[in-house]
Simulated scan of single mutants.
Amino acid sequence: MRLTFAAVVLLVFLSGCASTGDWSSDTPTKTSPKASRAARVNLQNQSVSKVYAPSDNLWIRIRDGFQMEPMNNPQEMEQLRWLSARPDYVHRSMARSSRYLFYIVQEVNARNMPTEIALLPFVESAFVTHAKSSAKAVGLWQFMPATGKDFQLTQNVFRDERRDVLQSTDAALDYLQRLHNQFGSWELA
Rank of each mutant, 00 (worst) to 15 (best):
M1V: 11
M1L: 07
R2F: 01
A7W: 05
A7R: 13
L10C: 06
F13D: 15
L14C: 12
S15F: 10
S15K: 11
S15W: 09
C17L: 09
A18E: 14
S19E: 11
S19Y: 08
G21S: 04
W23H: 05
T27L: 07
P28G: 05
T31C: 05
P33H: 09
S36N: 14
R40A: 15
R40Q: 14
R40W: 08
V41R: 06
N42Y: 04
Q44F: 06
N45F: 14
N45G: 05
Q46V: 02
V48T: 06
S49D: 09
V51D: 02
V51M: 07
Y52R: 15
R63N: 08
R63T: 13
R63P: 00
D64K: 14
Q67P: 00
Q67D: 04
M68F: 02
E69D: 07
P70V: 14
P70T: 14
M71G: 02
N72I: 06
N73I: 13
Q75T: 05
E76Y: 04
M77V: 12
Q79V: 15
L80P: 00
S84F: 12
P87F: 07
P87W: 01
D88W: 01
D88S: 12
D88P: 00
Y89F: 11
Y89E: 04
V90F: 11
V90H: 06
S93H: 02
R96G: 04
S97N: 12
S97W: 06
R99F: 08
Y103G: 02
I104L: 03
V105A: 10
V105Y: 01
Q106I: 00
V108M: 02
A110W: 02
A110S: 15
P121K: 07
P121H: 05
V123C: 05
V123T: 14
V123D: 00
E124P: 08
E124G: 03
S125T: 12
A126C: 00
V128I: 10
H130N: 10
S134P: 04
K136A: 10
K136R: 13
V138G: 03
L140R: 08
F143A: 05
P145S: 13
T147L: 12
G148C: 14
G148K: 10
D150C: 05
F151Y: 15
Q152S: 10
L153A: 11
L153Q: 10
V157N: 09
D160A: 08
R163A: 10
R163S: 07
L166G: 02
Q167A: 13
S168D: 01
D170C: 00
A172F: 01
L176F: 15
R178Q: 15
H180L: 00
N181D: 13
Q182I: 09
F183S: 14
E187P: 00
L188Y: 03
L188A: 11
A189W: 06
